[in-house]
């Protein structure tokens, strides 16, 4: 369970009154795919970084699985794994195996346990054949899978994806969706996905819509689709308009 209790955050370089996140409160339950959506600079990434313990709130409290993220508890990095937008900026190792092992070395695990976890995750993601390869030989989609594997070996309870599909081609995007669906079924983790790509919205079981550092909507995608009052804050996918028109037509007919 993730709890946000009146959380505010302001970046140091911004003015004192300019909040990236202002008085935001919500709770997230595990075993579902949650979408954080909103326009650029609305606070979604700040929110994700607060959950991962990479930022400390200016006021309020963020609790993940009972741990206050403001406390310097290293356990938070084990409980929450975050995968950033650009895989190239988060791969540390020169080979796939070394990169996956990096997080496990940080957890100070013995070698046998590291090997067991690496083999198990690579088998799960069908990534075994890449294990000895240099990272530079991987495609964009494979690099992203490597980032997922590097986080999964740490056995997190929550996985955060920051705009994961924005740089993927449609085929790699489809593969990514399959991986996500598999994870939610097999690992019982909670998945938070920050996205502005309409294709991703079909995956979400719960949506959090942000605008100018405030949380505007929390609920099912079906509910958001029919909230016309929120349209000026966020451009809805075209498919949603069509769905709404179709529903109106059906209502008239019935």
């Amino acid at each position: 369970m993730i709890l946000f209790d009146r959380v505010s955050y302001r970046y140091k370089e911004n003015q004192e009154t300019s909040f990236a996140l202002e008085e935001v409160s919500f709770s997230l339950a595990q075993n579902q795919i949650i979408g954080f959506i909103g326009s650029n600079g609305c606070g979604k990434t700040t929110c994700a970084r607060l959950i991962a313990g990479l930022l400390k709130p200016v006021s309020g409290k963020v609790t993940v699985c009972g741990i206050d993220t403001a406390s310097e508890d290293a356990e938070i990095h084990r409980k929450v794994g975050i995968i950033f937008q650009n895989p190239d900026n988060q791969i540390v190792g020169t080979t796939v195996e070394e990169d996956i092992a990096f997080g496990l070395e940080n957890l100070a695990l013995p070698r046998d346990e590291m090997q067991r976890r690496i083999e198990s995750v690579c088998r799960e993601l069908r990534f075994e054949k890449f294990l000895k390869l240099p990272v530079s030989h991987l495609s964009g989609g494979q690099k992203q899978q490597l980032c997922i594997a590097s986080i999964l070996v740490m056995q997190p309870e929550w996985l955060i994806f920051d705009e994961p599909t924005s740089h993927l081609d449609p085929w790699a995007r489809r593969e990514f969706y399959q991986v996500i669906k598999h994870l939610i079924e097999s690992r019982k983790v909670g998945i938070i996905m920050i996205s502005q790509v309409p294709d991703d919205f079909d995956l979400f079981e719960e949506i959090h819509l942000f605008s100018k550092g405030r949380l505007l909507f929390t609920g099912k995608p079906e509910e958001l689709k029919y909230r016309e009052d929120l349209q000026p804050m966020f451009s809805f996918p075209e498919k949603w308009y069509l769905d709404r028109l179709q529903k109106e037509k059906n209502d008239q007919l019935s």
């Binding site: 991962a52 794994g81 950033f84 540390v92 990096f102 940080n106």
Partner: peptide
């Protein structure tokens, strides 16, 4: 970005 990613993977 790399420093943030390393911290997220438990590096200290």
């Amino acid at each position: 970005d790399l420093a943030l990613a390393m911290e997220a993977r438990g590096y200290c």
